[in-house]
């Protein structure tokens, strides 16, 4: 008879286990395994993103940056401190800086790009060498950091915390949100762009069919790495729904404005906002 209970308990992670896509693994292993995934996709990460999302991820990121509309406004007495977590290749970070300069003529705000994976971060640093931000002003710096602890970043030291397509890889998402709350100053913004759940059943069917059958195949053909892309697809499915994730942001202490999130492309991705007051 204990057999009956077992399938349920082995699917729900307890204190010692967590999800790795659809697999249930030990908590201490997830960091390493996710690390493995991203180390193996680092070099052709953006190419794969383009292929898999048919270029839409660039639109999402652009929209994300425009919605945030962050930057030091003219007449302000203090530049802002940005932190882009899981920022790896730096597209969000450089996009934010570009936006702030274009819109507000902000050339003083600083940017910290943190990623747990040194391989991904190296991609970003490599790219940084050839950008205009590499002007000796030292506004941009790179940090290898675990998003759940951020032990090198002080309390109340950042103004804008962004994380794009990164938070679902955290072993403990709630700990990541709590840390975001810790390091933000009052008035600081937590902004997250992440895959989410499609709310329309018909579109969801097509989306699921596409992501479960085609994506791993593309991963195999283009990057010769089926398992990593299988993981990406499964982890998207495992990530909490919009309302649930909004609840987690509130639980960390953030104030969530009226609507709380914005769905992009029928909810394939969504933008979540939290305010530390």
């Amino acid at each position: 008879m204990p057999m009956l209970a077992r399938p349920v308990s082995s699917q729900t992670p307890d204190d010692e286990t967590t999800h790795f896509g659809y697999k249930t693994i030990k908590r201490e292993d997830k960091e390493k395994m996710v690390g493995g995934v991203f180390s193996s996709v680092a070099s052709n990460y953006d190419l794969m993103n383009d292929v898999m999302s048919m270029g839409v991820h660039r639109l999402w990121k652009n929209h994300f940056i425009n919605r945030l509309d962050a930057g030091m406004r003219p007449g302000s007495n203090r530049p802002l401190d940005f932190l882009d977590v899981a920022g790896g290749t730096g597209d969000i970070a450089f996009g934010l800086l570009e936006h702030a300069e274009k819109r507000f003529n902000d050339r003083a705000s600083t940017m910290t790009i943190a990623d747990i994976n040194p391989d991904m971060l190296r991609e970003g640093e490599l790219r940084y060498q050839s950008t205009k931000w590499n002007d000796g002003s030292d506004r941009v710096n790179f940090l290898v950091q675990n998003g759940e602890t951020m032990d090198q970043i002080e309390d109340n030291s950042k103004d804008v915390y962004t994380i794009a397509f990164g938070i679902r890889n955290f072993t403990n998402i709630q700990a990541g949100l709590d840390t975001a709350y810790r390091i933000l100053r009052p008035g600081g913004i937590f902004a997250c762009l992440e895959f989410s759940q499609v709310d329309n059943a018909a579109i969801d069917y097509i989306y699921q069919a596409y992501s479960f059958s085609l994506l791993p195949l593309m991963g195999q053909l283009i990057a010769n790495d089926r398992d990593s892309y299988q993981y990406l697809v499964e982890s998207i499915r495992k990530f909490p729904k919009q309302e649930e994730f909004k609840g987690m942001i509130e639980k960390a202490g953030f104030y969530v404005p009226e609507k709380g999130y914005e769905n992009l492309t029928f909810g394939v991705a969504s933008i979540h906002i939290g305010v530390k007051l």
């Binding site: 962050a70 030091m72 406004r73 804008v160 600081g188 913004i189 404005p257 933008i271 305010v275």
Partner: peptide
């Protein structure tokens, strides 16, 4: 508050500030 708080208004999907 710092200018960062402005994002709480700009991020609202109902429209521009």
């Amino acid at each position: 508050y710092a200018d960062s708080l402005e994002s709480s208004v700009t991020s609202n999907p109902i429209g521009t500030p």
